[in-house]
Each structure stands twice: as C-alpha cells, then as structure tokens.
Nucleic acid binder design. Structure first.
Length: 492
RNA sequence: GGGCCCGUAGCUCAGUCGGUAGAGCAGGCGGCUCUUAACCGCAAGGUCAGGGGUUCGAACCCCCUCGGGCCCGCCA
C-alpha cells in the first residue's frame, strides 16, 4: 500500500502513542451514551452553564478541531448527531492537554467523559474531564466543509461518503426504516414473508436479459432471477393465500438514474382480492410510511416533502382519458397500429415500426403524461394491448385491470388483477415468444402447469424498493440509495 | 450502442493566448481560554487519470485507452 505524507504523519502519532505504553486501538468504551443524550441534557441549561451530577461518556468520530491556546473545541460525530467537546488545559493538566493536541487528528475515533454544558456562545457541549483514543485514523477524512463531492469516489468508497456525510447516513437509515415499516405493515395485514430462489434454471416474470452463471455440481447453466412473480404465484396455487417477498432481482441491462442491474423488489400476491383492494393496501402502506418517515427523519427536507405528499394521498387518473386529454388525440382504443405508430413518431418516439401496438401507446403516455405525474398518482386501466399479462377488465372492453403509481415522474409500482386462466396464460406466452427475441422472454412451462391446478383469483403488485427509498429521501439517482452500486473495473 | 462534458496536492477547486503549477481545507512548526468552515504567522506538499503525437516548449492542441457524469437509445 502506498502512503501519503499525511498518512505518514498519522502513523508517527500511532508510534508515539505506543511508545508511551498507550493502546491506539483499544477494545471497548463501556458506558457510552449517544450524543443526543448530552444535547437533551443541555436543553434546560443557559449559555455558559454546566450541568451537575455524574459525568457522562460519549464516543464518535472527531470531525473538526479548533484550538485556542489553553482551550480547544472539537466536534464529535456519532449516529445520533454532532456534539461539541470543550477540552481545557486547566481540567486535563498541561502535559495531558498538550499531548492530546499533538496526537489527535480529525477523523480519529475518540471517547470523552465529562459534564454537559452550554458554551458561552450557546453551543450544546460536553466539557471533557477525560479523553480516550478509541481508534486512530491513518487515512485523513475528506475536506470538512465540502466533504466528498466526486460521485465516483462516493460510491466506490462508500465508507468515506458515509463518515463524511450525515445526509448520506440519514438516507441509508431511511431506506432501512422504510423496509422495516413495510414488513410491519404487511405482516400486520396477514401476509406471509417468503424467500424464493435467486438462482434459477430459467428467469421469468418479465422481459429482461438475465445474468447467467453455472453450477459446477449440476453441470448446468443457471440464471439469476429477474422478478419474483412466477414462484410467488405458485405459492398461491399451493394455498398460502397472502405472500410477499422482498429480495434482490438482477437484470443484465444498462444502468441509469432509475435502473440498476441489481435492485431490490417487493412483490406481493393476495388471493381472493382484486386490484382495487390492492389500491387500498398501497394507500395504507404509503400513508403509514409517510407518518413514520415524518417522525424519524424530520430534518431531511426532501424526506419531509415526500412524507407530506404521501400523507396527502394519491390522485387517480385513467390511462386513456388522461392521455387523450393531454395529447389532444381522440378514440385511441379504436386506432389502428399504423395510426398509433404515426402518433408515436410525431411525439418523438424512435421505437421500431414493427413493435407491437401497445408499445406505441406506452411511448405516447411516457411523452404526454408521465413527466407531469409529480404528486403521488395512480394510473388505472391500461389498454389491453400494452399489458399482455394482466387479466382483462371485467366491464371495460379493451382494458385490463391494472394500476401503476408514480411520484415525481417516476414509476414506483405496478399492480394487476392477475391472470389465472392456464390456457390464456399459455397462449400469451406463446404470442410473446413469437413476437419477441427468444432470449429476452422466458416461457415457463412449470408455471403454466401450476395454473392448471387452479390459482385463486388474486391481485399482485411489484414495488421497487430502491425507488421507494429515492422517493422518500429525495435522492436524484438510484445509486444514492444503493450502498455499493455496480461500478466498472477494480476499486483501487 | 450514440452524443456532449469531466478527471490538476489527501479533500474542495482555480489555472488566461501553448512559456514549465496555484488557493482554501487537512497535515507540520509557532501563537492564541468561547470557537463552531475559528483566527494570525512560517514552511512543506504534484505521475496535471494513463499512453502516444504536434511543438523550441503541452495541464492546455490532436489521437488512443481507462474511469466517471448528463442526455438519448435499450429496458412489462
């Protein structure tokens, strides 16, 4: 490993520490409380006042040091926030005080013991009567004011991004809390969480190119799943009635601000219910998430805005009516594929002319409607030609029972009343195989056979967890909510 | 896959017309008992992403490679 001059200096301090018989990497720091506890105890104090009682112990990362001769101020970060330490020569003694200043650096992990106090300038603080080095940082932290800005460095060295950025820490905590609350909500609604296989012989349930790998034992090629749908529906056939899975899916496609080759999907299937029941479930889930996020992370402005938006509830629009209203086009369901192709062309689409007609309608919707779906919005009852795998609408010809929902122009989820007629399912698989490239569409015979045993009428939904996290944290890119997103080449 | 842009000190960034490298932070030394991007003084710190070319001379112009960002395409 190469070493910069800065690291050389810090190593020299470690050596000095050891030469004095002190351990630069001790084992523990018992009795420590979060810095938030100290801030709370400072609240009743006036500026310049110190709390009485037993001393308290805090631990965290040193972010900044401001040395003023015989008094020094240090900012200590822990997961609960930041706290100022006040270190005084008259409390530690001159030798200890000078020694600390010589050997401490920003980035070091330190423990401090002392009494809560509010500085004369009004800053909640801990007046240290004792300091301990808990782990020396050899590598210097990023610049204290701007932090780590380079997006590549931030994702390749996520640990540095996290230690330098309370916002980044908050975003990943938010993601974790969203998943936890989602589980609580679904468990409370009587759903069973299951885990199905990631490694499969044939990745189905969507139209995406799979990753492939090989089992040395089976001497067979395997694929990484692209969706959770087909195995979960087989569980409905098996009588599990209400199931969900939260798990990684993999699609061998390019990445952009809303797509990652490796992403986390929530899929949920609910027997004897339809897509209107699912709508109610989704509304309840997002209202609950909004409440919890509002409680947990009120300090993140984008999180507060999202929480408010979802607390206000969803708008509902009809796919065809909204598209016609915004585009000025009329009677879209009656148009020929050729007419739809011309409309899509006029709207700037470059999809191939021989695409299925549903593709042109999707492109028109993307062009005329999607960008304006900034508040939470359900889009209902898509044209059947855009959605070959949903159940046809019970009363609206040419439509399917489906909704998607959007926030800030981004699709967050997609729900159907599920197709459970085995013969129709077989027919649609066959049509797809004929219309599309073979390698992009799996024809899962075992799934069709499963439907022959009878799958109860059911509704299902897929919700992208990464996008959920983006929505609730205001992250502009999916990479901001994935701890270690795929990056080209070696991490140096 | 196509287009545009970016890569300079550990970090954040300047760098003019092609004339041989700058600041702030961090770190070192000195000063300072209420600062919070602390402040003041001194000194130090560079494979200008990598390679090739043009030129008397390249961080700067040209070509290639690597990595990244944005837009488009692809992607129920």
């Amino acid at each position: 490993m190469d070493e910069t001059p800065l690291e050389h200096e810090r190593r020299a301090k470690v050596a000095r520490w050891r030469s004095q018989g002190r351990e630069p990497y001790p084992w523990s720091f018992p009795g420590r409380v979060p810095t938030e506890t100290v801030r709370a105890r400072c609240r009743p104090l006036a500026a310049g006042e110190e709390a009485g009682g037993e001393p308290v112990r805090v631990a965290g990362r040193l972010r900044a040091l401001r040395v003023h001769g015989k008094t020094a101020f240090a900012d200590l970060d822990d997961l609960s926030g930041a706290l100022q330490l006040i270190v005084r020569e008259d409390l530690l003694g001159e030798a200890a005080y000078r020694g600390w200043l010589a050997d401490l650096d920003s980035g070091d992990l330190v423990g401090a013991e002392g009494r809560p106090a509010v500085s004369r300038r009004g800053e909640p603080s801990l007046v240290a009567s004792r300091l301990e080095l808990l782990a020396k940082a050899i590598a210097p932290p990023p610049e204290k004011y701007h932090g780590l800005q380079d997006p590549e460095e931030r994702l390749r060295h996520r640990h540095v991004d996290l230690l330098a950025s309370a916002e980044s820490r908050a975003r990943f905590r938010a993601r974790s809390l969203l998943v936890r609350e989602t589980r609580h909500y679904l468990d409370g609604a009587g759903f069973l969480e299951v885990e199905t296989s990631t490694l499969v012989p044939l990745a189905g349930g969507g139209a995406a190119r799979p990753f492939t790998t090989r089992s040395a034992y089976l001497a067979e090629e395997l694929q990484l799943r692209i969706a959770l749908e087909l195995p979960l529906k087989r569980l409905l056939v098996g009588g599990l009635e209400r199931v969900y899975e939260i798990g990684k899916c993999f699609r061998n496609e390019d990445l952009d601000s809303t797509h990652s080759p490796e992403f986390t999907m929530l899929e949920l299937y609910w027997a004897y219910a339809d897509y209107r029941d699912m709508q109610a479930l989704v509304e309840g889930l997002y209202r609950r998430l909004a409440e919890r996020m509002g409680e947990i992370l009120p300090e993140v402005p984008a999180a507060r805005a999202a929480a408010q938006a979802f607390a206000d509830g969803f708008a509902s629009i009809d796919f065809v009516e909204e598209l016609e209203r915004r585009s000025g086009l009329t009677r879209l369901l009656e148009r020929s594929p050729e007419e739809l192709r011309q409309y899509a062309r006029a709207a700037g689409s470059t999809v191939p002319d021989d695409s299925p007609p549903g593709v042109f309608l999707d492109k028109l919707f993307e062009h005329y409607v999607e960008p304006d779906l900034s508040r939470p919005t359900f889009v209902f009852d898509h044209p059947a030609v855009t959605t070959p795998l949903a159940k046809r609408h019970r009363s609206r010809p040419g439509r399917v029972e489906r909704f998607e929902f959007y926030y800030r122009g981004m699709e967050l989820g997609n729900a159907y009343t599920e197709l459970n007629d085995p013969d129709e399912q077989l027919l649609r698989f066959q049509e797809q195989s004929a219309a599309r490239e073979e390698d992009r569409y799996a024809f899962d015979e075992e799934f069709v056979r499963a439907l022959r045993y009878g799958m109860p009428p059911a509704t299902g939904i897929g919700i992208g967890i990464d996008r959920m996290a983006m929505a609730f944290t205001g992250a502009p890119s999916i990479k901001d909510v994935i701890l270690f997103p795929l990056a080209r080449g070696r991490t140096a």
